[in-house]
Amino acid sequence: MTGVFDFSDAKDFYNSIRNSYLRYQKGPTRATEDLLYVVMGLNHLREWIAPDFDSNSKHWSIPRNAEQIFSKKIFSHPAHAVIRQLCNHTKHSNRTMNTYTEHGAPIDDWPDFDAVQSTDLGPPINHFVDGKPISEFIETLIAEYETWFVSQSS
């Protein structure tokens, strides 16, 4: 069996990413752990669609099928560049990007007191990358992937 745990293919992984993003957006606060899963998932999902397609070198392999063409398209997308950089920023904990978390939820909106990183700040209510809401980049990529998976099912 391919995949990881009960994700047997790229569409399963995509559905999990999309559902995590919907959960992230639901309610008055935003869980950073959901956001990191979405960022890392969106960064790597194209590799599930086109496994073994070389994007790590300076010279791309020649795309030989629709999956590889799509993978190259996603890799070249400006929103993916931000997500990829943020994913690597997180992985290596280096400061190559300007990230910011907005706080300010009333205590009645806190989902779980023990999950709050700072009781002075409260839980996040929004996340930003280089001054823009992270949702701009995520929603752009989710739309690209959604179009891809719809086209593959028809």
Rank of each mutant, 00 (worst) to 15 (best):
C87Q: 09
A31K: 13
S8C: 15
I83T: 01
T147C: 07
E139W: 05
N65G: 04
I49T: 01
H80W: 11
S57F: 05
K72M: 11
L86Y: 07
G41H: 06
V82Y: 01
A66N: 15
F128E: 12
D108Q: 09
I138L: 02
I74N: 11
F113P: 01
D120L: 15
H80T: 04
I142Y: 00
A115S: 15
A79G: 03
K132Q: 14
D112K: 14
R64Q: 11
F137L: 03
D130N: 13
S20D: 13
Y145Q: 05
K91T: 09
S16C: 12
D108G: 02
W60Y: 13
I142Q: 04
E136V: 09
H77W: 04
I17R: 02
V38Y: 13
I17A: 05
Y100C: 15
E102I: 03
S8I: 00
L36P: 10
T101M: 08
L35G: 13
Y100E: 15
D6K: 02
E139Q: 13
I49R: 05
H127P: 14
P123L: 03
T29W: 05
V82W: 03
A81N: 15
V39E: 08
I17Q: 02
I49D: 03
S16K: 10
F75Y: 14
C87N: 13
V4L: 09
D54F: 00
Q117R: 01
A81G: 08
P28N: 13
V38N: 10
C87M: 06
D9T: 05
N98T: 04
A66Q: 13
S118T: 00
G41N: 04
L86K: 11
D34C: 14
L86H: 07
L42Y: 06
T32R: 12
H92Q: 06
P124I: 02
P111W: 07
L121P: 12
E146K: 14
M97W: 02
T29V: 01
E102H: 00
D114Y: 03
S61L: 09
T90C: 11
N56A: 14
H59R: 13
M1H: 15
G104E: 04
I134H: 08
S118Y: 04
Y145W: 14
I17K: 01
N98R: 11
L35S: 00
E146P: 10
N15P: 10
S16D: 12
D54E: 13
A81H: 07
H59T: 00
S71R: 01
D108T: 07
S8F: 14
Y14C: 05
L42E: 10
H103P: 05
I62C: 07
G131T: 01
E102N: 02
P51C: 00
S76V: 04
W110C: 02
V38G: 10
W148M: 11
W60T: 04
L42M: 04
S55N: 12
Y21A: 10
